[in-house]
């Protein structure tokens, strides 16, 4: 780690103002200031000297950023500084958004979940081994090419992988996108904006060095989960090589809204560890809508979910794996 100064401001505006580019570790290879939430991902980047900030601004001093609260309309706001453990254990999350609780329970390890925050988790940088290796100056770090595309791609993207083959590392994000979550962003002047989490993540085609739409002097402060419609059901499934504490080879979140007669009229199917951003499988959703879900429908949807995949030399196994997982998640959600 390089030497850096440390600040722990007491307000959000101060925090945002102190930093040029802000958000946990969004300043790879820069020498500016960096905002720190739980710090798990940032410490990893600092130790590899993939970030060498002059200043680390801790958000731990800003009160209230870890709150989890439901509003009168039944929407749930989760503060960006809420730890993964506190979100996973929260009664409202467990009762109303079990797919999120499942995704959180499978993220990292208990010791890390006690420190890692939901905001930091969404903003963590890719865990692509080329990106994390100081010895590989890859495209995302300003280098000339993506090493994974013709290299060791077993854990890489099967969609949208022509330029850079990272997968988004956040498992909770898979569930949150499926649940239609928004993120709330505040800037140094106190202005706030909200946008759907799905739109918050940035594809390599739009920006090769940044994974999200956070602007300079802006802080992610909360994740908002909408109140769910009657008849909503959901599931999140993940599959790693290991059974516990491992990055998923594939993870899938499915949120369905059924009519009283059992017909699916809304469907959200999201693939994690498949693409540089959590991937909505819209073709699969179309298959499900207006149907009564059974094994055949689920299998059709699962096949549709993999349409257009462009696996790399080492990861075509993910096609079969995702297909199985999507089918199982749909059936699990449909109950």
């Amino acid at each position: 780690m390089n030497r850096f100064a440390y600040a722990r401001p007491g307000t959000l505006a101060e925090a945002a103002a102190e930093t040029g580019l802000v958000s946990e570790a969004m300043v790879a290879l820069s020498e500016g200031a960096v905002l720190m939430a739980g710090g798990i991902d940032l410490l990893d980047l600092l130790k590899s000297e993939l970030v060498t900030p002059s200043l680390v601004v801790s958000l731990r001093g800003v009160p209230g950023l870890d709150a989890i609260a439901q509003d009168a309309a039944g929407n749930l706001a989760i503060g960006a500084m809420a730890t993964l453990a506190s979100v996973a254990e929260h009664a409202l999350v467990r009762a109303s958004y079990p797919a999120l609780a499942q995704a959180l329970a499978g993220a990292a390890s208990p010791e890390l979940r006690n420190v890692a925050t939901l905001g930091g988790n969404l903003l963590q940088r890719p865990h692509c081994w080329y990106f994390r290796s100081p010895a590989h100056h890859c495209l995302r770090k300003g280098g000339g090419h993506c090493f994974a595309i013709r290299g060791e791609s077993q854990y890489h993207a099967i969609f949208d992988n022509q330029a850079c083959a990272i997968v988004h590392p956040s498992t909770p994000a898979t569930a949150l996108v499926a649940l239609g979550a928004d993120v709330e962003l505040h800037d140094a002047e106190g202005a706030a904006r909200r946008l759907p989490l799905e739109d918050f993540f940035v594809r390599p085609g739009d920006d090769l060095q940044c994974e999200n739409a956070l602007r300079p002097r802006e802080v992610l402060t909360a994740v908002h989960l909408p109140r769910l419609a009657e008849g909503t059901r959901m599931a999140h499934l993940r599959q790693g090589e290991k059974t516990g504490f491992d990055w998923p080879l594939a993870d899938v979140a499915v949120v369905l809204v059924h009519d009283p007669d059992g017909t699916c009229h809304e469907a959200s199917v999201v693939l994690g560890a498949a693409a540089p951003v959590p991937r909505r499988a819209r073709a699969a959703e179309q298959v499900l809508k207006g149907r009564r879900i059974d094994a055949m429908v689920a299998a059709d949807a699962a096949r549709a979910a993999l349409q257009g995949a462009t696996p790399l030399s080492r990861n075509d196994y993910k096609l079969a794996l995702f297909e199985a997982l999507v089918r199982r998640a749909i059936l699990a959600a449909a109950g």
Partner: peptide, 16 residues
């Protein structure tokens, strides 16, 4: 333990 909860002490700045 940090305030009674297990954490990885290698992934936390002491100053925090």
């Amino acid at each position: 333990w940090l305030n009674g909860r297990p954490v990885c002490s290698c992934m936390m700045l002491a100053i925090d």
